[in-house]
Structures are given as structure tokens and as C-alpha cells.
Design a protein around this nucleic acid. Structure first.
Lengths: 154, 154
DNA sequence: TATTGTTATACTCTATAACTATA
DNA sequence: TATAGTTATAGAGTATAACAATA
């Protein structure tokens, strides 16, 4: 009890550990919150995230989508199926390779994505608006860092 | 198609929308990643988060834990049950109110929490170490902002 | 009657393993 | 035989509704 003795780690390394631990807990809590706040929304954050890949990168195969989102192919299969059911994406045969399919945003999907970006997330937008300017800038920088970290995860 | 016409929103408001939307997607992706990277760890991030509340705030009732973590009581009941099974927390009767129970970290729980903080999250620590100093500072500030936002969510 | 917590149940998200179809 | 995708199945995490025990 009290202060643990861990001479193997330097002070700086311990700070890094603490930061990583704090970030993990904090991000998981915020993510839980954001998911919970979307009840009644037309699409979940998982679905939104998948659609946003299609918007930024264009039509692609389920396998490519899974790789981009860093999920396993069967997970993406389910997300795609749900979005096809909703009419927000299309699932077309690949022109030359009969094994592949091509997934693309439908006009309805583009519309809902635009809508969600500009008119939803009211809670989060409100919270962000209460931060000072420096914090908002920090959040912006942190988002880039998060995206880079996930992209680097190979 | 093309640029949608939304004269109701000012440019600044649109930036706020975009930030909120980017943040939501980014946080959910990172959270998914962090959860996935903990396979084989003794406790999940959900469990770790619950334990960290007990460490920072001391023993409390399941209801208080649920409120702190912003989950519904039945969700916390399950997390608590799993941690009791693992021997990381204790569940004792309240001294004066027979309806309540008091949840506290066990010595094994304190040890594992210390361990997780200082020796785990290797992937995340490594990613953080690759950021420049300004980005690390931004992440630190962003964590505080996230925690504040979740705490403000009433 | 109000409060605290649990049980029952269901849904979402994700994974692994096994399978089908095509190359 | 290798690749792309799906189906089958399971487990974690969360919620709501209904219940039991105590105040």
C-alpha cells in the first residue's frame, strides 16, 4: 500500500503508462456514452462509421471495408447486411471477379450521412461548445492522433 | 448531390457539427480497437473502468457506481458479479441499510489495477510514444475534456 | 409507498470456426 | 490450392421491464 516500488520504470515511462491507462478508460467511457445517446437515431455509430469509410474512400469490397475499419470480415458482413436492409448502401457483383462484391453508398445513404453529420450529435456538439478554445483545438489534434494510431495498428 | 444547401447553419456551426461527428466516429473506432487489444488480459476495459472508480472514490454502493460510470444499475450488477467472481472486489452488506451493499476493491483487485496501469496497454503506450510532444499534450487535454463531458451528461 | 438491488430477457457489436463459390 | 465472402455460433456489454427485500 501507499507508493509502490517499481524501480524498473523511469518516471517518464510511468507517466506514459498512466496516460495510456487514462486514455483507454476515458475513451471507452465516452464511446459508451455516445452509443447510448444515439437511441432513436436512424443508424448506429458502427453503421455510421462504415458508411463514412465509403464516403471518404469510395466504393469498395467488404474485405477492404473490414480492413479499413479494423474489424474481422464477418463483423463487416453483418454491418453491410443491416445497411443494405435499410437501403443506405448497395451491394453489387464485381465486374470481373465473381467472388467479390462492390459496396457503395446509395443516394439515401449519402443523404442520411449528410444529415447525421450536420444535424445530429446534438449532445456532443453542445458539450464541445462549452469547452474553451484551447481545449477544442486539443480535441481536434487528439482526433488526428487517434486516427493515426488506429491506422498504424498493423 | 454535390454541395447540399443548408442555409440554416452558419459556417462555424457546421464546423462544430463536423468536429462532433469526427470525434464520435474516431472515439468509437479507438474504443473498439482498445477493447480488441485486451484479449488475454485478466480484466476487460469495462471491468477496469469500474475498478478505477472504486480506487479513486473509495467503497460505494452498486447504484453509486452505476451513476459514476453512467450505466444503468442492472449493467453494473453484472460487472460487479464478474469482478466478485474474479476476487477483485468485495460485496459486503451495508452497516445500517439492509437494502444496500458496499462494494470495495480487494487487495488482489488493487494489485491487478496497479499492474494494468503500469504494465499493460503496451500497444497504446507505444502509439503514444510515437506522437510529437504537442500531440501528447493535446491528448492529455482532450482526456480531461472527455471526462468533463461525460461527467456533465445529466 | 419509495428505494435499492437483482433477475429475466433481448439487442448490438464483435469474434472464431466452418462453409461455399470462384479464381 | 488460395481467396472472398457468408453462415453458424458464442461471448461481452448494455438496456428495459418486472421482481424482491428493506426502509
Amino acid at each position: 500500500m501507499g507508493v509502490p516500488c517499481r524501480p524498473i520504470l523511469s518516471y517518464v515511462e510511468q507517466l506514459g503508462d498512466q496516460l495510456a491507462s487514462d486514455l483507454a478508460v476515458s475513451v471507452v467511457r465516452l464511446a459508451r456514452h455516445l452509443r447510448g445517446r444515439r437511441q432513436g437515431a436512424p443508424v448506429s455509430l458502427t453503421q455510421l462509421s462504415a458508411m463514412s469509410i465509403l464516403r471518404s474512400e469510395g466504393p469498395m469490397s467488404p474485405g477492404q471495408m473490414a480492413a479499413q475499419e479494423r474489424v474481422q470480415p464477418p463483423s463487416m458482413t453483418r454491418v453491410i447486411a443491416s445497411l443494405v436492409d435499410l437501403g443506405y448502401i448497395n451491394r453489387d457483383p464485381h465486374p470481373t471477379d465473381g467472388r467479390q462484391v462492390v459496396v457503395s453508398l446509395s443516394p439515401a445513404g449519402e443523404a442520411i450521412l449528410e444529415d447525421e453529420t450536420h444535424a445530429r450529435e446534438a449532445w456532443l456538439r453542445n458539450q464541445l461548445s462549452q469547452l474553451d478554445e484551447a481545449s477544442v483545438a486539443a480535441v481536434r489534434t487528439a482526433i488526428d492522433a487517434f486516427d493515426k494510431m488506429v491506422a498504424n495498428s498493423d
